[in-house]
């Protein structure tokens, strides 16, 4: 029963932005092979894999981060601004917390408001504590928990195609968008739009 529910949920989330047909096998190099479950700022639980079907920019952060994480969010917004409204509508941004213990849904919500990314396209989510390392491993993020609750971590924006394959990554984040990364974002969005426009087989 649970399996059917999950399958239906998957179908539902694909209604607006389908890439491949939802029952096509997930590619072996997709990060959505991960069984990890996330919880968003509205306390909704969902499988990370349900993001499949949409072009995504993903990163890892934590809300009490003073230094670079704000820059990370700004970096994502800057990319957003370089896109047309049409492109923007088909891009999702998912920020996954390194610090699920302290990043409660409330903390996530507060950060989203403070940084003005409180739109349905942006997802701030926390994973289960035991999944943080493996999610980071799939995304190529490296981090270390410090004694005072802070984290050392690499700051990277990862571009996923609708199937969850890593298409591009950039570590240069800040006011000026990485031109190569931005080009990859636009290209991936264009490919996804084309695939969308094609009539579904069978």
């Amino acid at each position: 029963m649970k399996l059917l529910l999950m399958f239906l949920m998957v179908l539902a989330t694909h209604a607006t932005s389908a890439g491949a047909a939802p029952d096509a096998p997930l590619p072996g190099n997709s990060v959505y092979q991960s069984p990890a479950r996330l919880m968003d700022s509205k306390s909704r639980q969902f499988a990370w894999a349900t993001k499949r079907g949409q072009v995504q920019i993903v990163s890892m952060f934590y809300t009490s981060c003073k230094f670079v994480c704000p820059m990370l969010i700004e970096g994502g917004k800057v990319i957003d601004q370089q896109l047309t409204a049409e492109e923007r509508a088909h891009l999702g941004v998912t920020l996954i917390s390194l610090d699920p213990k302290r990043d409660t849904p409330a903390a996530l919500a507060r950060t989203a408001r403070e940084r003005n990314v409180d739109s349905p396209r942006w997802t701030l989510a926390r994973p289960e504590p035991q999944d943080v390392r493996s999610i980071a491993g799939l995304l190529g993020v490296r981090y270390r928990a410090l004694a005072d609750g802070e984290f050392n971590h690499t700051t990277v924006l990862v571009l996923l195609d609708p199937e969850g394959r890593i298409v591009a990554r950039t570590e240069s984040i800040g006011g000026v968008p990485d031109a190569l990364f931005l080009a990859a974002v636009k290209r991936t969005l264009a490919n996804a739009a084309r695939a969308d426009a094609k009539p579904r087989s069978g």
Partner: peptide, 10 residues
Amino acid sequence: TNRFCGAGAL
């Protein structure tokens, strides 16, 4: 520090 946030590299 920019690359590794917080305290920086080991």
